[in-house]
Nucleic acid binder design. Structure first.
Lengths: 232, 232
DNA sequence: CGGGACTTTGAAACCCTTCAATGCCAGTGG
DNA sequence: CCACTGGCATTGAAGGGTTTCAAAGTCCCG
């Protein structure tokens, strides 16, 4: 089902490897090599569950490569994607001891690092740097969820799809990019934006015909008129 | 415009005053009286701004009484409410040093405690308990935003309004309550659920006529059929 | 080369938005 | 005391966007 490997220094991954933001005085770069000795890396298959809803929350996870979706399935069978995790994103927070949503790998060869919650939290008790990094990670998570709320709050499907494309372009690249390779299918986009698959497809076709974007195949998107995407 | 008062022991408020959740071993109750000596309490008027978008993020805030909305106004003039803060909720996190949204008091006599960010973060550096509480607060924030995403992800307006009523009932009371007093107007509900005011009104009327809820005046809602509200 | 999943397109029904008007209520001033 | 005003809430009707159902087209992988 999956391959598992203990962490090795050469493939070192850190829970967070960036500057301490949100603080007025920019502190030195925080490298938490100490955390990596606790992490375990697994490779997941397409659609494979990383953890299930209502399972005890025993670890934080960080996406090394690939994409992860947090979902919930309603009683009527409809699926909702609550969050989409890209490389370097951290997930697995739970405020009640168990996960509120299930986490699934989107594609085969999705590599995930798992950090045992208790050990990390115990570490944070003693090491302010660890606590600080945890805090920044949470801030990023909040920021990501707020962005998604802003997208879901838009009125028309074209606006939602347009904002989604921009969001992906920004998150998948360090600089403002003109080309995006969509990490998920139309179905996933639909469940992420709370619109039907057909509407997703029609919106993309619409944006293409308006000359706002260009499509190469189904996953490759070129952003031609960024301003039009922002306004809807 | 507002009244300001330094903190006094008699009206002691804590940044967080609950058990450490999300951990396997339940630790003793955490009372952070030390943080309160740094907090400043202000009373805000109806629609008064607590902080503005893109202002430097200099403090965390906790709602003591009343309601706060985090909003953004689009270029087309439409307003979106990204988050709704009720008593005991903490807000004001920023991942880039400045606030992403503006915060406004909903009603007159909204009391807010402000905790200077730098001092709290400095405290957290030295006191693991502070860091721990900060972490739990962030978890609650993430949980709240995910709930809102779940609501915005529903299809029909009736489902959205129904979920919103349940959410308010759960958040405004410790136990599952049958009666809710809505803290915000129809306009605010509309901007929070990303539907028009008229649709909010029609949805409520619809739910009333189906016997799912009862309305006393415009703000008082009695939940009659909780199950129907959950399913939509 | 075939099967299956994914994507696109069409048409009808439905829901929501928009525009418009009315109703309601509290606060204010005559 | 009453009329008036402004903000909020409700209701109606028309138009437009989205969902749903259906079908065809495309891509990928075994």
């Amino acid at each position: 089902m999956y391959t598992q490997s203990t962490h090795t220094p050469s493939t070192a991954t850190r829970l967070q490897d960036r500057n301490w933001q949100g603080s007025a005085r920019p502190p030195p770069e925080v490298r938490l090599r100490s955390l990596d000795s606790f992490s375990t890396t697994k490779t997941y298959c397409r659609n494979q569950e990383i953890y299930g809803q209502e399972q005890p929350a025993e670890a934080f996870y960080k996406v090394l490569s690939g994409t992860v979706r947090l979902c919930i399935t309603r009683v009527d069978g409809r699926r909702q994607i609550i969050d989409l995790l890209l490389p370097d994103d951290v997930f697995g927070f739970a405020s009640r001891g168990e996960y509120d949503y299930s986490a699934e790998a989107v594609e085969t060869n999705t590599r995930i690092a798992a950090y045992p919650r208790r050990r990390i939290e115990a570490l944070a008790e003693g090491d302010p740097q660890v606590a600080r990094v945890l805090h920044e990670i949470m801030c990023r998570c909040v920021s990501r969820l707020q962005s998604q709320l802003r997208i879901l709050g838009r009125i028309t499907a074209r606006e939602k799809v347009g904002s989604f494309l921009l969001e992906m372009a920004d998150r998948l690249s360090d600089k403002p990019a003109r080309k995006v390779i969509l990490p998920i299918s139309r179905y996933d986009i639909a469940d992420y934006l709370a619109i039907s698959v057909e509407t997703v497809s029609r919106s993309l076709t619409d944006l293409k015909q308006r000359g706002v974007i260009a499509l190469v195949g189904t996953r490759r998107v070129k952003i031609i008129d960024r301003h039009a995407l922002e306004d809807g």
